[in-house]
Design a protein around this nucleic acid. Structure first.
Lengths: 334, 334
DNA sequence: TTGAAAGCGATACCAA
DNA sequence: TTGGTATCGCTTTCAA
C-alpha cells in the first residue's frame, strides 16, 4: 500500500502538500493539484484511517446503538439504521454498530478508545441508565427518543403527542365522537420507552379538547390479544365508530378479526394507524395513517450529530411534526 | 485522556511494559503487572484505537455489508446482523455497518483505508459483481450465501438443498405422496441470491429419490399471490396433501386462506415451513419447520473470519446441516 | 503557494 | 523479566 510519502515523491511535492490537496484546507495551484491527483490515482493511494485518526483526532465514524432484540419492532429499527448509515455516508462518515445489550460499557469502550466521533442511540428509555455515562464522554451523543431528563443531550423523535392529536382531529372531522385507542402492549409501557406514553398523553388531551368520548386500551399483538382488546372496547365504549391503532403488529390480526365479525372498514368502523408508510400501504386495505418517518428521524439524528461535531448550534430536543395521509380506512360514521 | 506514557510514568515502568501487560504477549512479573494495572485503573487509561491500528496493522473491526432495503426479509437480516455483532464482540472485534447499495466502492473504501480487518457480506448473488473486487483486497472476506464461483472466498450458509430434503423426507415419512412447494416470489429467483435455487434443486432431487409427485410454484407474498399460487397447485397437482413453504411472508396469508377455504391444518393438509424458529412458533398454529439458523450462520461467518485472520485453516465452503423441528402442522394424510 | 518537521499514541524489535 | 526507541502514516504548525 502506497503512503502519502510515496505520492509526494511521485508528484515531486512534499507530503504536506498532498495532505492539503486531499483536505482542501489550503489553496493549491491548479498545476500542483493535478500532479498530485494524478499520482494518487496512479499509485492507488488511500489514506490510512488509523493514521488519520491519530493525527487529526477525528475518526469519521459514528456509533449507532441499536436494540438487536426481536421483541421490538424490527422493520422500524431497520429503517432507522438504514437512514443513519445513508445519512452518515453523505457526511463522509461510517457507522459502527453496537448492540444495546452491551450497555454502558459498550458506549464507554468505543468512546474512550476514540473509535468514534459521536454516538447515536435508539430505543432510549424513560430513565435510561446510560445517560449519566453519556454525559461523561468527550464525544457528543444524539438520542432517538426522549427520556425524562435529556439535560445536556440532544434528542430527536417524531412528536408522538401531536401524532395522536392528528389522528383524533381527522376522525373528529369525519364526524366520529366515540373513538378507541388500540395501544401498544403493556410490555411496551412497562419497558419505559416514552413514545407510548407521549402518544397516550396527546391522545387524552386531544380527546378532551375535541370533546370526544374515548377509551385507551393496550393490546397484545397476537390474535387473542386483539380479540380481548376489541371485546373490552365493545364493553367499555359501546358504539365506538373509530379506532386509532398505535400498534403495528396488531394491525393485521385486527383487520382479520373485524372482517370475521362482519365489520367493514371503513363503512362500519374507521381506522387511523400510526405506522410506517409502507406498512399502511401494504395492508389488505390501504390505511389512513400517521407516518412514523424513520428515515427522516434517522437523518435528523445524523444531521444533529454533525452540527454538534462542528460546533454549530442545535435545538436540544427536536420533535418532528407528524403527517397524516388519507387512504381508504376512514369515512363518516353511519 | 491519559496515554500509555502517562501510565508508564505512574507505574514506574517503560511504555513497552505497559503495552505488554495489555497484550499479554510477553511474560510480566506479577508485581509489575499489578502496579501497571493499578495505574491504568487510576488514570482511566484506554488505548487509542487509531494509534493501535497504525502501530499494529490491526483494527479489530469487521465490516458487515447488509442489504438495507425493505424488499428482503428484514427480520432475518436483522438476526444475521445481531449474530455477527455479538460473535464479533466475543472475539474482541467491533462491526462497521455498510449498506449493500454502496456496492464495490464501499468495500474498497473501508478495506483500502484500513478501517477493517475482514469483511462479511450478506445477500450475495449468483454472479455477484463484488467478488472480483473482494479478491483484490488485502483483507479476507466471508460470504453469507453461495455464489456460482466462490473461488478464493470463504462462504457459509444453511444447506438449503438438504433443508428441502429434510422437509420432503419428513412428509414422506408421514405418508404424503403428493406435495407442493410454495416457493419465494419470482423476484427472488430473478435477483439471483442462490438459496432459492439451491432449495429448489434439493426439492427436485429429493422428490425423485423418494418417488414423490411434486410441484414447485413461486409465490408472491400477499393475499392475491397466495390465492393464485394455491389455485395453480390445485389445478396442476390436484389432491396434494402437503405443502412445503419456503416463503416466510406468505405463511400468514396462506394459513388464513386455507382456513377460509375450510381446509384444516394438519388434518386436511400438512405444512412444513422453512423459516426462523420464532416465526414458526408465533403462527396461529405452531408450524413444523426447518429452521433458518441465522444466529449460527452469523456466528460461523465471524468464526471463519477470525480463523482467516490468524492463519488457521478453514473450509472454503461451509454449509450448515438443517434441523427439522416437529410442531403441530404435520400429520398423515387422510 | 509550498516545504520541513514535530507530533499523534500505540507496538514490537533489539538489547540488556 | 524489563527498557529504549524506531516505526506506523498522516495532520498541522511554523517558516519561507
Amino acid at each position: 500500500m502506497p503512503t502519502i510519502n510515496d505520492v509526494a515523491r511521485a508528484a515531486g511535492v512534499s507530503p504536506s502538500t498532498v495532505s492539503y490537496v486531499l483536505s482542501g484546507r489550503r489553496p493549491i495551484s491548479a498545476q500542483t493539484r493535478e500532479r498530485v491527483q494524478a499520482a494518487i490515482a496512479e499509485l492507488g493511494f488511500h489514506p490510512h484511517a488509523g493514521a488519520r485518526a491519530l493525527a487529526s483526532s477525528k475518526t469519521n465514524v459514528l456509533a449507532l446503538v441499536a436494540p438487536l432484540r426481536l421483541d421490538v419492532n424490527v422493520p422500524v429499527i431497520m429503517q432507522f439504521a438504514t437512514a443513519v448509515v445513508t445519512a452518515s455516508r453523505t457526511h463522509n462518515h461510517d457507522v459502527l454498530l453496537l448492540t444495546k445489550d452491551e450497555g454502558t460499557a459498550g458506549l464507554e469502550r468505543v468512546a474512550n478508545s476514540t473509535m468514534v466521533d459521536a454516538l447515536i442511540l435508539m430505543d432510549v428509555e424513560r430513565e435510561d441508565v446510560r445517560l449519566p455515562a453519556l454525559r461523561r464522554l468527550k464525544q457528543p451523543s444524539v438520542l432517538i427518543g426522549l427520556p425524562n431528563d435529556p439535560l445536556g443531550i440532544a434528542c430527536v423523535d417524531l412528536d408522538f403527542a401531536a401524532a395522536a392529536g392528528e389522528a383524533l382531529r381527522h376522525l373528529a372531522w369525519h364526524g366520529h365522537r366515540k373513538i378507541a385507542l388500540v395501544g401498544p402492549s403493556p410490555a411496551v409501557y412497562r419497558r419505559g420507552t416514552t413514545y407510548a406514553e407521549r402518544f397516550l398523553t396527546g391522545f387524552t388531551e386531544a380527546s378532551e379538547s375535541l370533546g370526544l368520548r374515548t377509551l385507551a386500551h393496550p393490546c397484545e399483538p397476537d390474535v387473542e390479544g386483539v380479540r380481548a382488546c376489541l371485546d373490552d372496547i365493545d364493553a367499555q365504549l359501546p358504539g365506538a365508530t373509530a379506532l386509532v391503532v398505535h400498534n403495528e403488529e396488531s394491525l393485521r390480526p385486527l383487520l382479520d378479526l373485524l372482517r370475521a365479525r362482519g365489520k367493514r372498514v371503513p363503512e362500519d368502523i374507521s381506522i387511523v394507524a400510526i405506522c410506517p408508510r409502507d406498512v399502511a400501504i401494504n395492508m389488505p386495505l390501504p390505511l389512513t395513517s400517521v407516518d412514523i418517518p424513520a428515515h427522516d428521524v434517522g437523518g435528523l439524528a445524523v444531521e444533529t450529530a454533525m452540527r454538534l461535531l462542528d460546533g454549530r448550534s442545535i435545538e436540544s430536543v427536536r420533535l418532528l411534526p407528524p403527517t397524516l395521509v388519507e387512504r381508504e380506512s376512514c369515512s363518516p360514521p353511519r
